[in-house]
């Protein structure tokens, strides 16, 4: 009891130094950092979408829209404050504080949009959410494409590149932690109940609309955070990065990982992000300096697609089904039938 309070922050206290060391050790590996950042962003997106699609059993297909909101909001914010420094703080620290605020701001704005989009559509059962989120994603994109201040189709440039491995992966870790803690709380049980049977959940006193909206808002928040981080390491953000295709990529990640499985989402997000990059290495190896090296790179995407098809044929329920990584070890089967 007395030392219980440590349980809450403990994972963060453990991971923070590890990530810091990692970040420090890899400062002169720009490609690793870039790849890790993209991967981290995809992990955040997949895990957060899994809260809605996997755990709550709703079907959102406009996650890229919320990511766009976060990216543009944070990007715009950071760019506007690029020449500003906080008193009493050295420049680097001040930049990071502003960056943090920008990320939170991006997340909050995305969460607000999540609330506005989710409230009307989640009150109804069925596929309304899919339709509304699809529409939302497109509206956001068209809006961005036509807004002068946000750079139209060309995109928003000149966002200070303040992201780091630490920032991205800390955010990814927090997202995972939040998702896991939600699932294992009473709150998460209510979400799972909604997924299993909405009518029954409602009859057992679960405020289904309220819970669905909250889950959706949390999910949107993290999508916004992912977008905000994205905006701080990609030199230009552009509406074409947040299309329906992007939304579907995230859906594919969580379906392939097993709807409802957080670790599945993390794992597939990592694999599916790195796979094309890995293929690049494999495909160009041994073709040094020949014409072949110039020809094979476009094979990556078909191979990537084929891999997905194969996965879904072999494991239609996704990598882990609804279970988590640790459920796969036999030890955690306390069941059998004890007489």
């Amino acid at each position: 009891m007395s030392r219980e309070w440590i349980k809450g922050p403990l994972p963060v206290l453990v991971v923070l130094p590890i990530l810091s060391v990692l970040t420090y050790a890899t400062t002169d590996m720009p490609f690793f950092i870039y790849l890790a950042s993209i991967t981290g962003v995809n992990v955040i997106l997949a895990v957060s979408l899994n809260i809605v699609n996997g755990i709550t059993g709703q079907f959102s297909i406009g996650h890229a829209g919320f990511m766009a909101v976060g990216a543009y909001a944070a990007g715009y914010f950071s760019r506007a404050l690029a020449g500003v420094q906080l008193v009493f703080l050295p420049e680097v620290v001040s930049d990071q504080v502003i960056f943090l605020v920008a990320v939170v701001f991006g997340g909050m704005l995305a969460a607000l949009f999540g609330f506005l989009v989710g409230l009307p559509s989640l009150r109804l059962r069925g596929d309304y959410l899919a339709i509304v989120t699809l529409g939302f994603g497109e509206i956001i994109r068209v809006f961005l494409q036509n807004t002068e201040a946000l750079g139209r189709a060309l995109g928003l440039r000149g966002i200070p590149q303040r992201s780091s491995l630490l920032a991205v992966w800390m955010a990814a870790f927090l997202t995972i932690l939040v998702a896991r803690r939600i699932v294992s709380s009473s709150h998460g049980r209510s979400l799972l109940a909604i997924r299993e049977d909405e009518v029954a959940a409602e009859a057992m006193g679960v405020d289904t609309t309220g819970y669905k909206v909250r889950a959706f808002v949390v999910s949107s928040f993290f999508a916004g955070v992912a977008g905000a981080l994205f905006a701080h390491f990609v030199p230009i953000i552009n509406p074409s990065s947040f299309t329906f295709v992007k939304s579907m990529e995230i859906v594919v990640m969580i379906v392939a990982g097993g709807l409802g499985s957080t670790t599945g989402a993390v794992l597939t997000a990592i694999i599916l992000t790195l796979l094309p990059e890995q293929l690049r290495t494999v495909l160009t190896s041994g073709a040094e300096g020949t014409d072949l090296a110039q020809r094979v790179d476009q094979l990556r995407m078909p191979i990537y697609g084929a891999t997905l098809v194969a996965l879904m044929l072999l494991r239609p329920q996704g990598l882990f089904g609804t279970r988590e990584l640790w459920d796969l070890w036999p030890r955690s089967q306390p069941k059998a039938s004890d007489p």
Partner: peptide, 26 residues
Amino acid sequence: KLAVRVYDNQGKPEESANAMTRLIAQ
């Protein structure tokens, strides 16, 4: 001899930045 390493960016800016970083750093 000259050789060119060609990377596909799928028409996306973030992939372009990625390919760029790879060309420069790797």
